[in-house]
């Protein structure tokens, strides 16, 4: 028996909106630790890892580890029917072939339940080793989204370079080139407006903008994004999910042939 009650149901809507364009079908894994997902895009170039810790739920009952295979676009359709302030409860029996989403309005005057068919998904679960990164950039998530969107009108790839000067996002295309430099800046009114660059070594990596733009669908989840770079690893683009977890996107770089 699985029963997860999330008071901030709007968070789940935002999580689905940030996943559904990248991944079609995925297994949600429920354990005592929390509600999690790991999935790759169909080209196996990007990977997403979601964790919503059990402590973040108002009520979290998971009698035994359960894997729920869901079509993410169908799940997003169902969650779209919930109000942004609704309380969302996810329910499933141990041997269930469906999952129930229950939506309660904040003042309890409307209660809806939606039942969605589950699917068998044969997914690979990858081991992601803990890594030391050469550079970690924290910046406003809306700024990062704007940069990815702007650069993708000019080129297909972005070179992200971190030096003492700051973090530089560069692209080139048929019409010309573009470079945007963001400097370390903590003299801001609000902490979420800060850009914090921690650099052990300079690093420069090339990525497909199409994927970066897809990751920025998570922007409504968090004011800040963390971009972790190492020359021999995929980049990690992380958004916190309130105080209860995170969504991490991993993207393999492009390398010179």
């Amino acid at each position: 028996m699985l029963e997860l009650r999330l008071v901030q149901g709007g968070l789940l809507k935002k999580v689905l909106d940030s996943l559904k364009d990248l991944v079609n079908d995925a297994n949600f894994d429920c354990s005592a630790t929390g509600f999690s997902l790991q999935a790759m895009d169909s080209s196996h170039v990007a990977l997403v890892a979601l964790l919503l810790r059990s402590e973040g739920f108002e009520h979290y009952r998971c009698d035994r580890n359960l894997s729920l295979g869901m079509n993410l676009s169908n799940m997003a359709k169902m969650l779209k029917c919930a109000g942004n302030d609704d309380i969302v409860t996810i329910k499933a029996d141990d041997a269930a072939d469906s999952v129930t989403f229950m939506f309660e309005s904040p003042n309890q005057d409307k209660i809806a339940d939606f039942d969605m068919k589950l699917m068998d998904i044969d997914s690979e679960h990858l081991g992601i080793p803990e890594a030391e990164f050469q550079a970690i950039v924290r910046m406003p998530s809306a700024e990062f989204a704007r940069i990815c969107k702007d650069l993708s009108t000019i080129g297909d790839t972005v070179v992200i370079s971190v030096t003492k000067e700051g973090v530089k996002f560069s692209t080139r295309g048929d019409i010309g080139t573009a470079n945007i430099v963001c400097r370390h800046n903590t003299s801001v009114d609000k902490p979420e407006e800060a850009t914090i660059i921690e650099m052990e070594e300079t690093v420069s990596l090339t990525f497909a903008l199409r994927y970066m733009n897809s990751f920025t669908k998570a922007t409504p989840l968090a004011n800040q994004v963390t971009i972790s770079l190492s020359s021999d690893l995929p980049v990690v683009v992380e958004y916190k999910v309130a105080e209860m977890g995170h969504i991490r996107f991993y993207l393999a770089p492009k390398i010179e042939e």
Binding site: H44, V45, L126, G127, T157, P234, A252, K254, E257
Partner: peptide
């Protein structure tokens, strides 16, 4: 010309 690496080149299946 750039070659797109895959996630599987970096992380192994559990």
């Amino acid at each position: 010309p750039c070659l797109q690496r895959r996630i599987l080149d970096y992380f192994n299946e559990n």
